[in-house]
Deep mutational scan, measured.
Amino acid sequence: EPLWIRPDAPSRCTWQLGRPASESPHHHTAPAKSPKILPDILKKIGDTPMVRINKIGKKFGLKCELLAKCEFFNAGGSVKDRISLRMIEDAERDGTLKPGDTIIEPTSGNTGIGLALAAAVRGYRCIIVMPEKMSSEKVDVLRALGAEIVRTPTNARFDSPESHVGVAWRLKNEIPNSHILDQYRNASNPLAHYDTTADEILQQCDGKLDMLVASVGTGGTITGIARKLKEKCPGCRIIGVDPEGSILAEPEELNQTEQTTYEVEGIGYDFIPTVLDRTVVDKWFKSNDEEAFTFARMLIAQEGLLCGGSAGSTVAVAVKAAQELQEGQRCVVILPDSVRNYMTKFLSDRWMLQKGFLKEEDLTEKKPWWWHLRVQELGLSAPLTVLPTITCGHTIEILREKGFDQAPVVDEAGVILGMVTLGNMLSSLLAGKVQPSDQVGKVIYKQFKQIRLTDTLGRLSHILEMDHFALVVHEQIQYHSTGKSSQRQMVFGVVTAIDLLNFVAAQERDQK
């Protein structure tokens, strides 16, 4: 057995438009009618409502009807409940999964919650491996369901041993009777949507819809739904939504950006999952974080739909894509998950301010006199920076000697690579993860907040409520011999709460 199987392995699926269902090699399930009293909570997966979006479509000038398939009504709160249950049931049916076995899954959280929910009911041990950027709410729900959680670096490539995929496979090879159901490759993922989600949409719309818009992560949702719609409703256009920084969209030119990270969760990847059939997507749109969270908040405030950030991405694209539809036509959007997962993220004004998705003037509360002053007023001194090749031991000596707790790590040209902190280095040394002679590049981390000289002290204040420091950066445009230009970030300084307090105190003292 291989040590790991690539999540982007070539698909062996034989589905073709027009091929009889009787030739399918898979076990198919028909939607079942729910009894009045459910035998367990797993029976509350599927049969989610279709809700008309009344205000947002009109606000953006849509002539067509805009409908939302509300997947956050599933038992675990997301569309991923469907595939989690289906993968477990299919693994039980073919004898792969037996009582007492362990389920391991690399996930952005929602599939993990679905699997942990099913594992709690069915009696399996469950280990979820997820990147650090995923919300604390997801972690809390997983723990409450009895799952064990392993976190991995957000910026690790999918084929790196440190990625959530790599760590999951390492655990599988170490733990007896453990299984990775593997949402990236498992046919049960798109089949769950082909058999149930798509049929529900067709039934709820009486077979009449002209466009379907869905955000894409593993691709199982859009693949399964689109294949069924292509068979039953061939005139329906399928629109895929991919965040900026991901590479799922086609044509490839759409993916060209210097951005590699994004805040919206559960969609987009740096590889093409095996289950994603991009041939059934008629057109791709890219979405960005700001519009995703703005539209998610709009869905909550104006439509009462308590959905997550990827739902915002989907609707932001839908109001663009559906401009081509006329009166009497219908566009369906998939709202994948609930706001429950993001209470401390985009639902929080403070978080939105820190990330730059909300401006101070958007909030009406009274601010102190210094709130709208610029960061450049602080008069920061030149920063202490270190090269990635310097040793951890030497870096600790320098920081202690100069009285700093942290320093930016830059390359020879001064471009920011990340940050090192005294606390992080000492804990890594004590844990045996690094040696004093190791290069400081081994303990770089990139989960820090950046701020510009033109940003306000109010925004800085919000950042420092949650973080010990902020890195002050400025952009530099560099022209190359080819005539092309590129933008790079340079370090201007490091600012802490002490710097802000000293500035405010000094100004008030001078005024007296």
Rank of each mutant, 00 (worst) to 15 (best):
A407N: 01
V275I: 08
D438V: 12
L500I: 14
P336N: 05
S486Y: 11
D438C: 09
L500M: 11
I498D: 14
L378S: 07
K283F: 10
I300W: 03
S481V: 14
Q302N: 15
L335D: 04
N288D: 15
M490N: 15
T294H: 15
L457Y: 12
W370F: 12
V386W: 05
K366C: 13
Q376L: 14
R340H: 05
P383I: 09
Q406A: 07
T391R: 01
L399T: 06
I398P: 01
K366Y: 15
L500E: 04
D438L: 11
E327V: 06
E263N: 07
L306G: 05
N341G: 04
H474C: 15
K283D: 08
G356F: 01
K449F: 08
A249T: 01
G418M: 01
E397N: 14
A301K: 05
E244W: 01
Q259M: 14
E377N: 01
E475V: 14
W284L: 01
F404I: 15
H372Q: 14
W370L: 06
L501G: 01
A318S: 13
G493R: 04
Q439C: 10
T260F: 14
G414L: 08
E365P: 15
E303P: 03
R330M: 15
F357Y: 09
R488C: 05
I300P: 06
R400V: 13
D467M: 08
F404C: 06
C392I: 13
G483C: 13
M490G: 13
Q354Y: 01
V332I: 09
P383L: 13
E291C: 14
A506S: 14
V280T: 12
E465F: 05
Y269A: 01
K433G: 08
E265W: 04
A301R: 15
A407C: 12
V281S: 07
V410S: 08
R278A: 05
L325W: 01
N424R: 15
A407G: 12
H372I: 09
F404K: 03
L430T: 12
E401P: 14
T395C: 01
I396S: 14
A382N: 15
T389K: 15
T257L: 11
L501E: 01
S486A: 06
T257E: 01
S381N: 08
R297L: 08
F448D: 03
A316S: 01
K367D: 01
K359V: 09
L384D: 15
I477H: 13
L453H: 03
G379V: 11
I390F: 06
R488F: 12
R297D: 01
R400L: 10
K283T: 01
Q376C: 15
D405M: 06
I396W: 07
Q450D: 12
G328C: 15
V319M: 12
Q435G: 15
Y342F: 01
G245I: 01
Y342W: 01
G308L: 01
V434F: 11
K286D: 01
H462C: 09
L457C: 15
F295C: 11
F285T: 06
E360Y: 13
F285R: 03
V415A: 09
Q256P: 04
A292Y: 01
T395E: 01
L347H: 01
G308P: 04
D438N: 11
S485A: 13
G418E: 04
E361S: 11
T260C: 09
A413K: 15
V280H: 01
I498Q: 01
T456H: 09
K449P: 04
V333P: 07
P436L: 11
Q447T: 13
V440W: 04
K366T: 14
T294D: 04
F404P: 04
G393A: 12
F503W: 15
T274D: 01
G414A: 01
P251H: 07
E397G: 14
G432Y: 01
V410L: 11
E252S: 10
E303F: 05
Q487A: 11
G308H: 04
L453T: 09
D289C: 01
G423D: 01
R340F: 01
C331D: 03
L363G: 10
T391V: 14
Y269W: 01
H372F: 11
T260G: 15
V420P: 01
V472L: 14
H480F: 11
S348N: 12
G268I: 04
L335R: 01
G304T: 04
P408I: 04
R297W: 01
A301Q: 07
R459H: 15
R452N: 12
R330W: 01
Q435M: 13
R278V: 01
G423Y: 01
I300N: 01
W284Y: 01
E365I: 14
V440P: 08
A413V: 12
M343W: 01
K359T: 14
V472K: 01
E291I: 08
Y269C: 01
E265T: 04
G328A: 04
L254D: 01
V281Y: 07
V375E: 04
K367Y: 08
F448R: 07
Q435E: 15
E303R: 05
D405G: 06
S313P: 15
V281R: 06
R459N: 10
M490D: 12
K442P: 12
Q329L: 09
M419D: 10
V504K: 10
F285K: 01
S481N: 10
V494F: 10
L363P: 13
P388F: 05
P436C: 13
F271H: 06
T257W: 13
S485T: 01
K366R: 01
S381I: 10
I267W: 01
A316R: 14
P408T: 04
L399K: 01
R459V: 06
E258G: 12
T454I: 11
D362Y: 14
M343G: 04
R452H: 13
P408Q: 10
T456R: 08
V280S: 11
G309W: 01
R350V: 07
V440A: 09
T261Y: 14
G418Y: 07
G403F: 07
N424A: 14
S486P: 05
I238C: 08
L417D: 09
F346P: 01
S481R: 14
V494H: 01
I390G: 12
L299Y: 01
A322D: 06
Q487H: 14
L384V: 11
Q302P: 03
V434A: 15
T421F: 01
P383V: 07
V434E: 15
W351T: 01
L387F: 12
V491M: 14
H372N: 10
G483Y: 11
G266Y: 01
Y445C: 07
S486F: 11
E252F: 06
V241T: 12
T395Y: 15
K366S: 10
E291M: 15
K446Q: 15
P408C: 06
E412C: 12
A301M: 14
Q326T: 12
L460G: 04
